[in-house]
């Protein structure tokens, strides 16, 4: 087992998604074997409780709009709401289709999910049918803006922005040739940035329609995260954590700053900004996890992979909202939870 600054478990299934509850008491993970695992941080030594949820595997995961509950979408075609005690409620059932993406905005009560070329939006009101958005090509990713008013949907050759409250209407299309995958919004809601099939990012500034390309990555960019105050965007895809400046007019014509990693070493596969501090957690393809700051040489090692263990990429990271604890999960199913108060 890898050496960790905290507690570690071998859950033996691909860690697909992870989140902490708003009260910072629980971590919840969804897994490639269809289970959902819950860890009570007040008794972490007792380990994860595991609940069988999907017949196949989980493909996507998000906190539900109801505090403490979570949503997992699976290859059994179901979007399932899971409570902390494992109680379930089927939110959507699409039969043989896979539910590949889900995102939510608890403050406004919107939930969006997608399967193939269709995306669905559910409002707060119970019993309402979802709005169905049909796209020309498959959905690559979903993200709701920080205010909870707009939904970005990526596909081939563009990102479409929809008003969540509208029942219909054409989207604002941001076009750029190629297949767009993950998408994120800057904290002020002015920038939309996507990862692409090629090793590159594409971004748009909504206030004036400017767009920009960020490339030079050695690997596919599987993760990106804006710093809490939006001053930079941290990304994976390189042997070091790449952070693009977003102050003073955006990253156009500027060089990124970086931290961590080994030159020509394994690429960064997961990044997540600290919820309060100017710090980024990053996980690598070999299972290593660090916390650091762009431009700083001081990097805190969190998980160091064991030499005799088959390396497995970090697939998810999650902070508790109070910023005290970090969870890192790998494709092989290793989960590490570190309490930073015990490290200082």
């Amino acid at each position: 087992m890898a050496e960790s600054k905290g507690l570690s478990w071998a859950l033996d299934a691909y860690v697909v998604g992870a989140a902490a509850t708003p009260d910072s008491r629980y971590f919840v993970c969804s897994m490639g074997d269809g289970t959902v695992c819950v860890l009570d941080l007040t008794d972490a030594a007792a380990g994860f409780k595991t609940y069988d949820i999907h017949k196949g595997g989980s493909l996507c995961f998000a906190p539900d709009i109801e505090a403490g509950a979570h949503l997992t979408g699976g290859d059994d075609g179901k979007l399932i709401k899971v409570a902390l005690d494992g109680a379930t409620e089927i939110v959507a059932d699409l039969g043989r289709k896979w539910i590949e993406h889900v995102t939510t905005h608890p403050e406004t009560g919107f939930r969006a999910y997608a399967s193939g070329k269709e995306a669905f939006v559910l409002g707060k009101k119970k019993g309402d049918d979802p709005r169905i958005i049909k796209l020309e090509t498959s959905v690559g990713g979903l993200a709701i803006n920080p205010k909870g008013k707009r939904l970005a949907i990526t596909q081939y050759n563009n990102v479409n922005l929809y008003w969540l409250a509208a029942k219909e209407g054409l989207p604002q299309a941001l076009t750029w040739k190629g297949s767009h995958l993950h998408v994120t919004w800057s904290p002020d809601g002015d920038y939309v940035v996507t990862t692409m099939q090629e090793n590159a990012l594409h971004g748009w500034r909504l206030s004036d329609g400017q767009h920009f390309r960020m490339e030079g990555y050695a690997a596919k960019i599987r993760s990106l995260s804006f710093a809490k105050r939006g001053q930079y965007l941290a990304t994976g895809g390189a042997d070091t954590v790449i952070c693009w400046p977003f102050t003073g007019g955006g990253p156009m014509g500027k060089a990124p700053s970086e931290f961590g990693g080994i030159l020509n070493g394994p690429p960064v596969t997961a990044v997540l900004a600290h919820p309060k501090l100017d710090a980024i957690a990053a996980g690598f393809e070999d299972g290593k996890v660090i916390v650091g700051q762009p431009g700083s040489t001081r990097v805190m090692p969190i998980v160091t992979p064991a030499k005799d263990q088959e390396p497995s990429a970090v697939s998810v990271l999650a902070w508790t909202p109070d910023g005290d604890r970090l969870l890192a999960g790998t494709e092989a199913g290793d989960v590490h939870v570190v309490d930073f108060r015990s490290l200082s």
Partner: peptide, 18 residues
């Protein structure tokens, strides 16, 4: 390339050992 295969194979590979 086939975008659909990239997505589906990515999803299948999350079910290790199956």
């Amino acid at each position: 390339v086939r975008g659909d295969l990239i997505r589906i194979i990515g999803g299948l590979l999350k079910r290790k050992g199956k």
